[in-house]
């Protein structure tokens, strides 16, 4: 887990660092599935995120002057984290990220190699294969993976800079379905550990943070909310609330009541 300790007072900033890059926001947001680019930009601003994931796709050559993401989400202001969404083989993922590096100069990338629909579950064999090539090629790989403690440890040992298991399938909005396993996985991970998929609403993000995750990555929960900009604000607060609750340390659970008001001095 990350080594950041509780901020003793307001002067200590609660930041996190991945591969030498330090951030304040513990929310990473995707830039896909919005109504339009204007809404994308507004929702991302409202989320307070400092890192945004982006996809790499063919340019529409019949409309070369179409507005581009960079015009609405400034790469100088946000750290672009290119992903390999839609890649089903290691080779596709590696080619995609090499193109991303050339397009933007970023080494920090999100690797995902997916199995077939409808689950788009992480294909760990392809993921290992791609991670090995990418790390050898100088990439800093944040890796989307199954909630498999052995796979996560192996990815960390290979040199991945962040481990990012799913809480539920991509875009499902089912929430963190595996809190026990997420908690157990984390014990053996020293690089940043993020829940990367499955968050559906603010409480899901808070739960991930309360479990001790370094940060949370989400997209559809904001983009597919009825009011994405309001949900982006909700997510910002949920991440902060969950983080503070984790640092504060929750009270023990007990089966039964334990009154908060004294039982002595009662009138009779």
């Amino acid at each position: 887990m990350d080594q950041a300790m509780a901020p003793e007072d307001a002067r200590t900033e609660d930041t996190w660092t991945v591969s030498g890059h330090t951030f304040r926001s513990r929310l990473i947001v995707g830039t896909g599935r919005y109504k339009d680019l204007e809404e994308t930009g507004a929702a991302i601003a409202a989320s307070g995120a400092e890192i945004v994931t982006v996809a790499v796709r063919r340019v529409n050559l019949s409309d070369p002057k179409a507005p581009m993401l960079q015009d609405y989400v400034d790469p100088k202001k946000y750290t672009y984290l290119p992903n390999t969404a839609g890649c089903f083989t290691a080779n596709e993922a590696v080619r995609t990220l090499r193109l991303a590096r050339e397009a933007g100069g970023w080494n920090l990338v999100k690797l995902e190699v997916l199995g077939p629909p409808p689950l788009l579950y992480p294909d760990m064999r392809g993921t290992f294969e791609a991670a090995e090539v990418l790390i050898k090629d100088g990439f800093e790989v944040m890796v989307y993976c199954a909630d498999d403690p052995l796979a996560a440890k192996r990815l960390q040992d290979m040199g991945c800079v962040a481990i990012m298991p799913l809480g539920a399938p991509i875009g499902s909005g089912l929430g963190v379905q595996n809190p026990a396993m997420i908690g157990m996985m984390m014990e053996h991970i020293t690089v940043p550990f993020l829940v990367d998929a499955g968050v559906g609403t603010a409480s899901d993000a808070a739960i991930a943070m309360e479990l001790g995750c370094t940060a949370v990555l989400l997209n559809s929960a904001i983009a597919h909310a009825k009011n994405p900009i309001l949900m982006a604000r909700a997510m910002k607060h949920a991440i902060e609330a969950g983080r503070l609750a984790y640092l504060a340390g929750r009270m023990p659970r007990r089966m039964g009541a334990d009154p908060s008001s004294p039982l002595t001095g009662l009138i009779r």
Binding site: G32, Y34, V56, L99
Partner: peptide
């Protein structure tokens, strides 16, 4: 042809008939 063309080499890289090119950019994604 499945090899990256470095940005610095755009002017020098000459194309031949039959070349396969992928031209990509960033779009919204999760």
């Amino acid at each position: 042809n499945e090899e990256i063309v470095p940005r610095s080499g755009y002017a020098e890289t000459k194309l031949s008939s039959g070349d396969q090119l992928e031209i990509v950019h960033f779009i919204g994604g999760g």
